[in-house]
Design a binder for these strands. Structure first.
Length: 498
RNA sequence: GCGGGCGUAGCUCAGUGGUAGAGCGCCACGUUGCCAACGUGGCUGUCGUGAGUUCGAAUCUCAUCGCCCGCUCCA
């Protein structure tokens, strides 16, 4: 009820599966939930951890030009002043209730200002157009109409003020009260809650890297071009969290700040843009739903010279997974100004002293996890025990990402099969692969449960196991079974995980 | 933040003022021998939360929290 026409909505099915199988739960659900926060369940945490580990392996451990960092979530508030997060976004805003236009409070004229301008207009020292311009910066259709009419009819100035003041300059609608918009979550350091103890939960991980750039340079014997990588939580007090975990108030970023000479910045930008795009493809986002999009010049943030988004076509629309930006020397320069510390690098070969430019590949961990979940979600048909085709739901995770790599079953729960299966299970666990043992219910049902968990391989102990020490191993996607020696199970799986 | 829709068992939902239900699931036992099997028995709810109206509220009213859609926002 109330879901007419949406019962087969893909995103709803995915959210339902995530809960049913223990991938993702709403935070604090037993207390009615809390908007914009999510918990990862037993399968979800494995999936997310696999993704982060693969990223870390690929961008830190397998490279000699990137080092890792794990900075604190709470930093000196001056960091956020330097980065522009405190100043730029904390002005009070008012909205028009009619047309939803949003204004900074200081963009709107005060009553005194309205009185003064109308006064000038009445005296003839200002034209109607100039008056509108003075009051609204030229963007006030409603004000223009009212003032023109008032001018022609010589309306009493105080009546005009009453009509205009506190109304939307564009449509004349009612305005809301002024409200503060600051997307940083705030807390207090120490026991006293006053303005001197205010601190912020970081709204991005990048600043922790910039603030430590000098420390890393001085201690790790590394020099440009080099990168610092970090995975960590960030917090934004989003006005409207939406689309499952896609826009959350607490989220995790995986981010590289890559420092290089200005002359090499374009080259490194292109390198990282293409490398990061390929990374997602290699992990299984092979479909046409992934795309790389360069930003138009007018779309660029004030600190970026160029920027590309790696985007995924989610069931709710095309949205950004990762942004790769050429941030120039903007951030280090800002921190040099605000901290008074020299951020220059001295190249003793070229004898050049410079502030490095920064290429930033910044990805959302939760967004990537969600994209891999959406990509993996598959409905197909498989025969039941009578050969009749039944709907099957499976998660086609890349084996590297799959939360559980292998499940082990006895074909039936007797004749010593559970004991043999248990032994295989223990051996697989000891090898370091995630493994799941299940002996409950019919074999077909156990296979289907693992399909929904995205487990790529299921090993089954049957009667033949006792004759020749072999088991069947079933492929999640094709349903095909191979018969292999018991001692080859780990090797078989490892070969296919890659 | 604005407008609209919605909230009943783990899941999907029925129930429109009079004893909270179905299917699936889950658990146990038996049967069963490779893809959501069958039989028998069992488990599950502050009807999102709080207040109000009423003899009586899952049902009507208000508030609140959460979810979905469209705008808005995303430094």
């Amino acid at each position: 009820m109330g879901k007419e026409g949406k019962t087969d909505d893909l995103m709803e099915k995915i959210v339902a599966l995530c809960k049913r199988r223990g991938f993702i739960f709403q935070s604090s659900e037993i207390y009615g939930g809390i908007n914009g926060f999510w918990d990862y369940g037993p399968l979800g945490v494995e999936l997310k951890r696999n993704l982060k580990n693969i990223w870390w392996e690929d961008v830190v451990r397998k490279r000699d030009d990137i080092v890792g960092l794990d900075a604190a979530i709470i930093m000196n508030p001056k960091v956020w002043e330097a980065s522009g997060h405190v100043g730029g976004f904390s002005d009070p805003r008012v909205d028009c209730k009619e047309c939803n236009a949003r204004y900074r409070l200081d963009e709107l004229p005060t009553r005194v200002r309205v009185e003064a301008v109308i006064d000038e207009m009445t005296n003839g020292t200002m034209t109607v157009e100039e008056a509108v311009d003075a009051l609204t910066g030229g963007n006030g259709d409603h004000f223009l109409r009212i003032l023109k009419k008032a001018h022609k009819k010589r309306t009493n100035p105080s009546d005009v003020i009453e009509i205009l003041f506190g109304k939307c300059p564009q449509c004349g609608g009612e305005l809301t009260d002024a409200r503060q918009f600051n997307l940083m979550l705030k807390t207090f350091i120490g026991a006293m809650e006053d303005s001197s103890s205010v601190a912020y939960l970081r709204p991005e991980t990048a600043q922790g890297i910039f603030a430590n750039y000098k420390n890393v340079l001085d201690t790790s014997r590394i020099r440009p071009p080099f990168g610092i990588a970090q995975i960590g939580k960030a917090f934004r007090n989003e006005i409207n969290p939406r689309n499952f975990t896609f826009r959350s108030r607490e989220f995790e970023q995986m981010e590289i700040e890559f420092f290089c000479h200005k002359d090499d910045a374009d080259k490194w930008y292109e390198y990282w843009r293409d490398a990061r795009y390929k990374w997602y493809i290699d992990l299984g986002l092979t479909s046409s739903r992934l795309r790389l999009r360069d930003h138009e010049t007018d779309e660029l943030a004030h600190y970026a010279k160029s920027c590309a988004d790696i985007e995924y076509d989610f069931p709710f629309g095309i949205s950004e997974l990762e942004g790769v930006a050429n941030r120039t020397d903007y951030d280090l320069k800002k921190h040099q100004e605000h901290s008074g510390k020299d951020m220059q690098f001295f190249d003793d070969q070229t004898k050049e002293r410079y502030i490095p430019h920064v290429i930033e590949p910044s990805g959302g961990v939760d967004r990537a996890v969600l994209a891999f979940i959406c990509e993996a979600y598959t409905e197909d048909e498989a025969p039941d025990d009578k050969g009749k085709m039944q709907k099957r739901i499976l998660m086609k995770f890349h084996p590297r990402l799959a939360p559980i790599k292998v499940a082990v079953f006895p074909l039936v729960k007797k004749e010593g099969m559970p004991e043999v299966a248990r032994k295989i299970y223990d051996d697989v666990l000891a090898s370091g692969l995630t493994c799941f043992y299940d002996e409950k219910g019919a074999i077909g049902r156990r296979y289907r449960r693992q399909d929904e968990a995205g487990t790529p391989f299921c090993v089954t102990v049957d009667g033949q196991t006792f004759e020749d020490q072999t088991v069947t191993i079933r492929d999640r996607d094709s349903l095909k079974q191979d018969r292999i020696a018991v001692e080859k199970v780990v090797e078989y799986v490892r070969e296919r995980i890659g």
